[in-house]
């Protein structure tokens, strides 16, 4: 526990962003359970309702000895995980100056972009690095497809992010086991390991 160097008053924040339907709730629940199993207080906020129909979605997680607000203040997240490439830019205000951005290269074109006014921007890893210098850019879908299941992409990203958190690897794996359907456990554990090996 001491590896996280959390003082009694301090609360650490994490944010996951993506598009409704990408599985953000499950990913954030895996994180929250890992934190709880590692002996910390944890709070997490998730979005339901209107925001889910293909809109931008955010999950916010906070942990420490005694967490007050379940919502993450601006400029404070240690890590911002984006399941979709441009969503990292929409929510970058959450990220602390030196926070880690873990970004999937997956593109989901919003209807508004096809309809006209603002096109989907053509951005690559280096463009995003200008905004988030501390960046790990992940070809998550391609890697997950190689494992045989594109849906495991989120778990690869979790694996990458897990390196900034210093929780025992076994706690992560245990919460993956308790959160995903039995037949998907193996592929998700592998996906997590691939992510965790990425630095």
């Amino acid at each position: 526990m001491s590896e996280n160097n959390i003082s009694a008053e301090e609360t650490k924040s994490l944010v996951l962003v993506g598009v409704g339907g990408q599985g953000i709730l499950l990913a954030s629940e895996i994180i929250a359970r890992t934190i709880m199993a590692s002996g910390y207080d944890v709070k997490m906020n998730e979005i339901h309702g209107m925001a889910q129909r293909g809109g931008s979605v955010v999950a916010q997680i906070r942990f420490g000895r005694d967490v007050a607000s379940p919502l993450v203040p601006k400029h404070s997240a240690r890590a911002l995980v984006a399941l979709e490439k441009i969503e990292v830019l929409r929510f970058v205000d959450y990220l602390a100056d030196d926070g880690l951005a873990v970004v999937s290269d997956q593109e989901i074109i919003p209807v508004s972009a096809s309809g006209g006014k603002i096109p989907y921007p053509a951005l690559g890893e280096e463009d995003i690095r200008k905004v988030c210098p501390n960046l790990i850019y992940v070809h998550a879908i391609k890697l997950a497809e190689e494992l045989g299941n594109a849906r495991a992409a989120n778990t690869i990203l979790l694996g990458v992010m897990s390196n900034v958190l210093h929780f025992p690897e076994e706690n992560w794996k245990e919460s993956i086991r308790s959160c995903v359907k039995p037949k998907f456990v193996d592929v998700n554990i592998k996906a997590f390991e691939i992510g965790r090996a990425m630095k």
Partner: peptide, 16 residues
């Protein structure tokens, strides 16, 4: 607040 360059306008992504 950290100073971050704005690199692109983002198409809005409301629910659809």
């Amino acid at each position: 607040a950290p100073v971050r360059p704005k690199i692109a306008d983002l198409p809005p992504r409301p629910p659809v």
